[in-house]
Design a protein around this nucleic acid. Sequence first.
DNA 1: TTCCTTTATCGCAAATAAACGATTAGTCTG
DNA 2: CAGACTAATCGTTTATTTGCGATAAAGGAA
Lengths: 102, 102
Amino acid sequence: MKRTLENISYEEKTEALARFAKALAHPTRVAILEHLGSQSCCFTGDLVDVFPIAQSTISQHLKELKNAGLIQGELQPPKIKYCINMNNWQAAKALFADFFDK
Amino acid sequence: MKRTLENISYEEKTEALARFAKALAHPTRVAILEHLGSQSCCFTGDLVDVFPIAQSTISQHLKELKNAGLIQGELQPPKIKYCINMNNWQAAKALFADFFDK
DNA sequence: TTCCTTTATCGCAAATAAACGATTAGTCTG
DNA sequence: CAGACTAATCGTTTATTTGCGATAAAGGAA
């Protein structure tokens, strides 16, 4: 990849939408968010119990969701409580709504 | 990947959302859809002119969008006219709207 | 049929993503 | 400080994605 000299650049909205979409591009991450939505918050350990995948894998998915800005973690020793980042969640919601309104 | 014995299965809605999201997970594909939305339809060749990427690359992106069901091609010799698949577009729209309404 | 135009596919290379087990890093409690 | 517990990171393997040029299809026109 990246074999072209110049990188194409798109509108910031386009890039942002693609970034959010990428975060949602894996069913496990969607499921995590759904779970998070219904509980409003939860701990990593809860997810490990819910989903039959390794703890490290879940941690990675959480990391990506965090990087995308869709969730945020709050230290609550000895656990970490993850919640949806409502600001960015609303931003994403608006982006998608806008996008599909064509 | 896929090193676990059993494949986890998710709700169909979850999978569907992830599939659509995957299709939107690349800025070029988002841009193609935006372009398609503003024109309602267009030809592959148009896109090659608009985006500074190889024709084969665009063809691949179109293929993925087609596989995801977001667009459809109509033979209009010697070209192919691509349009948004409104049925699936609306379905995707509803899925995302639902998802973000948490 | 042969040529021309358009688009899809093939084959390859490089980059990312996905998953796991093992280890490390934090943060209390005793 | 030592131990216990939770979650993140590391290192590896495998799969998927992205991109390109080159080639093949497909269709209509000459």
